[in-house]
Nucleic acid binder design. Structure first.
Length: 110
DNA sequence: CGGCTGACTCTGG
DNA sequence: TCCAGAGCCAGCC
C-alpha cells in the first residue's frame, strides 16, 4: 500500500503546506504552480505533500487541482474534494473542469 | 541499490 | 476534447 505518510519528510513539505494554507476561500491553485512558487522539485512532490496531510488538517487541500483545472484525487476522496469546493461556492464547469483562469490564485511576490 | 508507483505536466495526433 | 507517450522525482519494498 502506498505512501504511509512519513512524519518528518522535509522542509519542502512545510513550505508547500504553508503556501496552500494561504489560498483564499473560493480560490484555486495547481500542483505545478505551487511547486514553482515554493521551489519544490516538481508537481509530484506537491502531490505527496497533500497526501501526507492528516484528516482534520487546517490545510485547504481541496483547493489544489491539476493543470487542467480538474480533480486528480481518484475515488471517493475525489468526490469529497468536489463537495468541499461546492461548499465554498466553487463549482465545476462542463466536464468537471474548474475555471482556473478565473479562480486560479497565486501568492503575491512579497 | 534496483524496480515500481503515483493527488503531475507537456506535447502531439 | 480525448488519449498516449515521455519526462520527471520522491518514497517504498
Amino acid at each position: 500500500m502506498r505512501a504511509r505518510v512519513p512524519p518528518a519528510a522535509n522542509g519542502a513539505y512545510e513550505r508547500i503546506h504553508a503556501y496552500v494554507r494561504r489560498i483564499p476561500r473560493g480560490r484555486l491553485s495547481t500542483y505545478g504552480a505551487i511547486a514553482r512558487a515554493v521551489g519544490a522539485s516538481g508537481p509530484r512532490q506537491v502531490g505527496y505533500a497533500m497526501h501526507a496531510l492528516q484528516a482534520g488538517s487546517a490545510v485547504p487541500w481541496h483547493r489544489v487541482l491539476n493543470a487542467q483545472g480538474r480533480i486528480s484525487l481518484p475515488g471517493t476522496a475525489g468526490e469529497r474534494q468536489r463537495e468541499r469546493l461546492a461548499a465554498e461556492g466553487v463549482l465545476p464547469g462542463r466536464g468537471g473542469r474548474y475555471d482556473l483562469p478565473r479562480l486560479g490564485w497565486i501568492a503575491p511576490e512579497k
